[in-house]
Amino acid sequence: MNGRQRLLAFLRGEPVDSLPLMPITMMFAADHAGVKYGEYATDYRALVAGQIALADAYDVDYVSCISDPAREAADCGARVAMFDDQPPAIVETDALLADKARLASLEPPDPHTGRRMADRVRAAALFRQQVGDRKLIEGWIEGPCAEAADLRGINTLMLDFFDDPDFVHQLFEFTLQLGMRFARAQVEAGADLVGVGDAAASLVGPEFYQQFVWPYERRLVQALHDMGALVRLHICGNTGAILGGMGQLGCDIVDLDFMVSLADARRVMGPQQVLLGNIDPVRVLRGGTPESIRAAIAQCHRDAGPRYIVGAGCEVPRATAPANLRALTEYARATAP
C-alpha cells in the first residue's frame, strides 16, 4: 500500500498493512530541504518540494500545506512580521480588530487572489500534480477560535468571552466563513483532507468551549465533509478538559498534544475515534534516542488502541536527529494497527 491508500483505507475502517504515519513537519521539512523558513512559508514551490522530499525520505503517508497560523490574518490585513528563517508572526500589539467596530466592515478575503492564502491554494494544486495518488494531500486552515485570536489578539479575546459574548459570536461567525472559503479553495485545488488548527481553544475551559467554540467547530466539520474532504482537528496544548466535545465533532482524525493522556482521550471519545499523537515533540522526539522514542510511541499505541495514527503531539522540532524521526517510521511500518 502507498501512503494515500493506507490512510484512506484506514480512515474507512478497512484493513491496512501497517500503522499510518502523520507527523507534522514544517521547520524540520524546510531544514531537510535546505531552504530558509521565510521562503518555505511564502513560496508554495519551496513548501511542496520540501514536503515531498521529507515524505519520501521518511516514508510519511501524507504531505501538508501547513506552515504558520498567519495566512488568513495576513490577507485580512493584519500586521504580520516576516523573518528570514523563522515562521511569520502576527503582531498582537497591533491586532487588526483591536477596535471591535472594524469587524462590521471586514470582508473575508478571496482565497484565490489573496496573497498568502492563494500561495497555499497553489501548494495544494502543485501537490496534486506532483504526488498524484502516492500520498494523502492535506490542506490547512485556522479553526474559528484560533483565527479569532489571530485577528483580535489572544489576550483580548479571552476577556471578550465575558465582556461581549455577542461580539465573540459575530467574530466566530466571520472566522468560520473565512475558514470554509479557504478550505473549499484548497479542496478544489486538490486537498483530500483539511487540517483545522484551533490552538487557542486549549486555553478555555469546558463551559466556554461548549458555549462558544464547539458550535462553530461543529459547523466547520460538517461543511468540510459536505465538500467531500476528510477532517483532522489539531488543538495544541492541554485539551484534557474539553475532550468530550472534541470527540463529538465528527472529525476523521483528532490530534492530541503531549500533555493529554491518550488513554483518557480513548475512554472519553470511544473506540472508533481515530487518535493521532502524542509524544512530547521536544523532550521525547528531539531529546530522546531511537530506543526511548520507540518505547514511548508503543505506549501511545497501547493507550490509543487500533484506531491510531503515529505522530508527535505537535510539530516535529527543528534539529530533531534524523534517526529519531526514523524511529517513528520504523515503528509505524513494523506494526499492525
Binding site: 489576550n155 479571552m158 476577556l159 468571552f161 465575558f162 486555553l203 478555555v204 475551559g205 466556554f208 478538559a241
Partner: peptide
Amino acid sequence: NEIFVPEML
C-alpha cells in the same frame, strides 16, 4: 484546572 485562562485574566 478548576478555572482556565479567561477566568484568571
